[in-house]
Each structure stands twice: as structure tokens, then as C-alpha cells.
Nucleic acid binder design. Sequence first.
DNA 1: CGCGCAACCTGTCTGC
DNA 2: TGCAGACAGGTTGCGC
Length: 285
Amino acid sequence: MPELPEVETIRRQLEPRAVGQTIVDAVVLDPLWCAPRPPAEVEEALRGRQITRLGRRGKYLIVELDDERFLVMHLRMTGNFLWVAAADTEERRYLRVRLWLDGGARLEFVDQRRFGTGIVLDGTDALDEYLSSRLGPEPLEPSFTADVLRQTAKGRKAPIKAFLLNQQMIAGVGNIYADEALFRARIHPLKEAGRLKRDEFARLRESIVEVLNEGIQSFGASIDNYRDANGAEGRMQNRFQIHLREGEPCPRCGSTVRKMRAAGRGTYFCPRCQRAPRPARAKVA
DNA sequence: CGCGCAACCTGTCTGC
DNA sequence: TGCAGACAGGTTGCGC
């Protein structure tokens, strides 16, 4: 669930409070979180370190430490990363990792499905290598232009929906925002990525930037598990135009919104606004 | 190399 | 009510 807007929301909320704090103790309760590295190794790397910066790349949250190391986390499907005040003694179910801070508060990684991960990387070279091997351009950077999108998609046969979900093509877009962006750009999810027209790439770039920014402004989308760093729900789910709206009228043309499977994921679209890639054509006699 | 799909893990919902 | 099966927002590895 957590896509770029959700991770950015958490980063922005934690930054003013966490930067400058020292991790006095770290406890990794679930070895799966940092596998194949043993919890003790990660705990030791974090203990005593000051947090100097909080960053984000795609859906990765990056905690910069004062010894040139980085804790790189991914929330995957159900991960939450919470700021917990000292007075809060609640024992959260699915707690995986706990970072005790010198100010008395703590950071808790909570994750029902246990897909979330954390890895400690040594130095900026290792960090850059880790991220750049996995991620394409940042869609909210000015360098993300329609032409970059077009060049990246050139020759690609995969459906545009699969293309958008591929983090090596564009970083940070997930199933929700892919649906929203394609709807707003009026592009069918199954259209071959390399076959989009210039104006479609232009609309798609605009739509991606628009929905991601809207997501950030709305503190992310809470469908099920997502909560921000304060444990609060986001509001972007109230602004969905197409996602999860099967059977409802399309907000643009009134046609009935449909659900299909694309790139192996539930995909919502308007059959009228997002025309099929190869409309069945009557044979010319 | 590109693409599709199963797998990772846990909980919830649907249909029989 | 019980239960098997499908499905859930992400990423990776494997087979073709």
C-alpha cells in the first residue's frame, strides 16, 4: 500500500522530530525484517548513532546516521513506521522493530504481513548502488519530463499499467496511483507502453505528478493498513476518482467503472474514457 | 533482455 | 457455522 505519497508523508512528519535524536537502543523482534543479516548485527549498527537526516527515494525511507551509514527501510504492503511518545505504553500488535530515542520517544516498525524490510548500508556509494539498481527516475523531480517517460517506454511491449508498477521505469508509483494517473490521462491500462502517442505521454506525466502531489497533500491513502507516522489515517482514499469505484459512475462521463486484472493486480478503469488498445474492428468486406 | 507469474506472510471476505 | 479459495496496496526470482 504505501506508495510514494505515503512514504513522503511519513518522512515529512518524522523529519523535524527525529533528526538530531540519538538511537539509544534498537530491538529487532522479527528476524525476517533484516534477513539475511542477523538482528544483533543491525541492532549493534544502530545503537548509539545519531539520526542526521531523513530521506526518501521511490518508496524507500532512508535514515541517515552519523557514521556514514544508512538505514534503508521499505514498508511493502502493510508496514507502518510510527513516532511513539514516551508516555505511550501501548503494546502494538505486529510490532517488528523498536528504536529507542534519547528524547524518550521511540520509532516503531509495525507490519502485519511481515513483508517490510530494513537494511543497513555503509557509505553513500553503497546507498547509491542499492537504490539506482532498483529505481528509475523520481517522478516529482523536474527532470521527469514527458520525453524521459517516452524514451523509457520506447519499444516496451508490457501494458502501461505494468510499466508504471515497474520501479525501474519510474520510482514510487504503485497500484493505486497508477490507476488514478491512467484514468486522469485517459489511457487504457492494457495499452502497450511503447505505443503511447506523444500527447499521451505528456498527459500521463502530468497525471502522475498531479496524483502523487494530491496524495502527499492528503497525507496518503488509507484503505486498510496504512497510517501516517502519528498513527492517523490519510485522506487520499476520499479523493479517488477511479480506484475501488467498481460499479459506480465515472466522474468524468458517467459510464460504469469496471474492474479488471492487469499486471496481476486489481485494476479499475472507465471503459469509455480509457479506450481499449485494440478495439474489435469489424472486418471490411 | 523483456515479460508474466508464483512466492513471500497474514488476515479478511466470498461462495458453497 | 465451517471451510477452502481468492484476494489485498510491493518486490523478487524464476522460467520461457
